[in-house]
Structure formats: structure tokens, C-alpha cells
């Protein structure tokens, strides 16, 4: 349980901080798609192990496949007139289908549950080290480019006239999402992962008046929700990933009620 709590302490705020940008940019569904694509990544990883005897970490495949899919979607956004949500929908259903076909061919049905809903119990100290690196990387990249990302969210042309290379930064952002998804997969699983990214900033936004407050509050909400999720799951003996998500949803409901009460006054 100690390792699980440490992971929640690291990943909760990291995902929430990333989520501020994801939600404001309208990329919640995009990150959800990358999370789902992880199914295929894991499947490809095991396929290579079985066929080629490569003893590579399946997480590497998850990351590479997420990046490939992100690149493909970005290409389709720009080059076709299809709506982004349409492109995302067929990209991720397609990759989940492919992943499941491969997994059944390999006969590894037991894996499915862990991929979809997380398996936080298999959390080693090496995992925690990687999670720490992720947290530092995400915070570093986003803070270093904070001004550029903020301006890109508000008005891309105003960023471009300052000479900010938005296309490069957008690609870097997709890379950050893919890395986060890959590393959080173990804790929450492909189906539930984006809750950790989307819910804390969504709840926080109901309570704050400006961007600075949002950047400060979202990680706090993410941290508290993740820790209480882990503790609740131990108390109730319920699955950890889904319990963390349920606590997040409960927090969101509390913020919604407060917001409604405040608006009434």
C-alpha cells in the first residue's frame, strides 16, 4: 500500500496539472483516445516478445504507439475536413480493436482486465522512479513554456506574431500526453485514465477566477482525490483505479453543488 500511496501522490497532481492545459485546449477526448490506444501498445509489446523473443518493456511500445497515433491524428486534423472528434473516434476504436485481436491471438485474455482497469498492486520502486521522472518532466516542460501555451490557448495568432513556434510546441504537448498516459496506465488502466487528467482541473475551474489559481488548485485537488481514492479502496477493499475515479467524480459533484449555490446567491 505504501508504494500505491506514493504513486498516487506523484501521479495525481501531475495528471491534474497537465489536465489544466488539456481541458482548456479542448483535448480531453484526444488524451482519452491515446489512453485507449495503449491497449494496442501493450498487445504489440507482447506480440514482439512472443514472436521475436524481444524482451523489451511493453511500456516502450505503448509510448511509441501513442505517439504514432497522435501524429496520425494531428495529420488528419490538418489535411482533411473531418471533424476532430470523428477522427479521434475512429482512431481509438480502431486501435482498441486491433489490440484486442492481437491479445486474443496470443491467448493472453487475463491481461485485458489489467490493461483496461489498471493493476496498481504490481508497483515496484523502479516504477516509482519513472513516475517521479515523469512528474519532473511534465512540470518542467509545461512551466518552461507556460507563456507560450497560455497564449496558444487564448489566441494562437497572438502567439505566432511573437515568433512562438506553436506547431512544434503542440507536438511536444502531444508527446507529454503520450508519456503521461503510458506511465499512468498501470495505475488506472486505459478506460479510466483520462479521469485523472480531466476531472481535477474541471472541478477546479468551477471555483477559480484566473489561470494562476487554476494552475495551483488543480494539482491540489488531483493530489487529495488520488490519495483519498487509494485509502478508500483499501478501506472498502474495492479496486483501486475505479475507486480513485469515483472519488474524483464525487469531488467534481461537490464543486458543482458549491458553484450552483454560489450562483444562486
Amino acid at each position: 500500500m505504501r508504494n500505491t500511496l506514493v504513486s498516487a501522490t506523484i501521479l495525481g497532481p501531475t495528471c491534474a496539472f497537465l489536465g489544466v492545459f488539456v481541458t482548456l485546449r479542448g483535448m480531453a477526448f484526444f488524451s482519452d483516445a491515446l489512453a485507449h490506444a495503449a491497449v494496442t501498445g501493450v498487445a504489440l509489446g507482447y506480440l514482439c516478445q512472443d514472436l521475436l523473443q524481444w524482451e523489451l518493456n511493453p511500456m516502450l511500445f505503448v509510448f511509441i504507439f501513442s505517439m504514432l497515433l497522435a501524429t496520425l491524428m494531428a495529420y488528419l486534423f490538418e489535411r482533411t475536413k473531418l471533424r476532430p472528434d470523428t477522427i479521434i473516434a475512429f482512431s481509438f476504436t480502431g486501435s482498441v480493436a486491433l489490440g484486442y485481436v492481437i491479445i486474443s491471438a496470443l491467448g493472453k485474455y487475463r491481461l485485458i482486465d489489467a490493461i483496461l482497469f489498471g493493476s496498481i498492486y504490481s508497483n515496484s520502486s523502479q516504477d516509482i522512479l519513472i513516475q517521479l521522472l515523469l512528474a519532473v518532466g511534465v512540470a518542467g516542460i509545461l512551466l518552461w513554456n507556460l507563456k507560450a501555451y497560455a497564449l496558444g490557448i487564448l489566441q494562437p495568432d497572438l502567439a505566432r506574431v511573437q515568433g512562438i513556434k506553436l506547431e512544434r510546441l503542440n507536438y511536444l504537448f502531444a508527446l507529454v500526453i503520450a508519456a503521461t498516459v503510458t506511465i499512468c496506465l498501470k495505475m488506472l488502466g486505459a478506460l479510466l485514465l483520462s479521469a485523472l487528467i480531466v476531472i481535477p482541473p474541471a472541478a477546479s475551474r468551477l471555483a477559480v477566477g484566473n489561470f494562476k489559481q487554476l494552475l495551483l488548485l488543480a494539482p491540489v485537488v488531483g493530489l487529495l482525490a488520488a490519495i483519498s481514492g487509494v485509502l478508500t479502496s483499501y478501506t472498502l477493499n474495492s479496486p483501486t483505479g475505479p475507486t480513485i475515479v469515483l472519488v474524483n467524480v464525487a469531488v467534481l459533484l461537490v464543486f458543482l453543488v458549491f458553484k450552483a449555490a454560489k450562483d444562486k446567491r
Binding site: A150, Q155, D157, G209, N210, F211, Q213
Partner: peptide
Amino acid sequence: ALDRNMPFSVMELLTL
């Protein structure tokens, strides 16, 4: 071209 519902204060916009 600028979504004014974004959670930014005037000062935050200016400092950008």
C-alpha cells in the same frame, strides 16, 4: 477569435 470564457484575468493576459 479569442474565447473570453477562458479563465484568465486581464493582468494575466497583459503579462503574456
